[in-house]
Amino acid sequence: MKKSFADLMEIRNKTLNRVNLRVDREEGIRIVVGMATCGIAAGARPVLKAFSEEVSKRELQGVTVAQTGCIGMCRLEPIVEVTVPGEEKVTYVHMTPEKAARVVAEHIVNKQPVAEYTIGAAE
């Protein structure tokens, strides 16, 4: 199909998310899921999948979903850390796929951390 420049820009914006993971790793929002044995055993995989799916579905720009090792509080797994540039890191505990969808909607999109899921609320 022949493309106009507007079409090209649309392709550019859609593809950018796929490519910029490889370019600047410092900027943008990072969602990091604890994926050590403890995390996986507590159900971190479906949580990670839920985050990736939510981010793709909403076509969010500049959001990285990544995994990390054991954070040290195995009893609170699955643990997810969300870093928004310029703001303090938010740590969510006992995550589920359903909670993940809400975190994306409220924290990532509307910039309102979901206080009741955070480590502060759990302790």
Partner: peptide, 10 residues
């Protein structure tokens, strides 16, 4: 368009 959390570049 699908988004992947990790890219393995070969």
């Amino acid at each position: 368009m699908k988004i992947y959390r990790s890219h393995v570049l070969v």
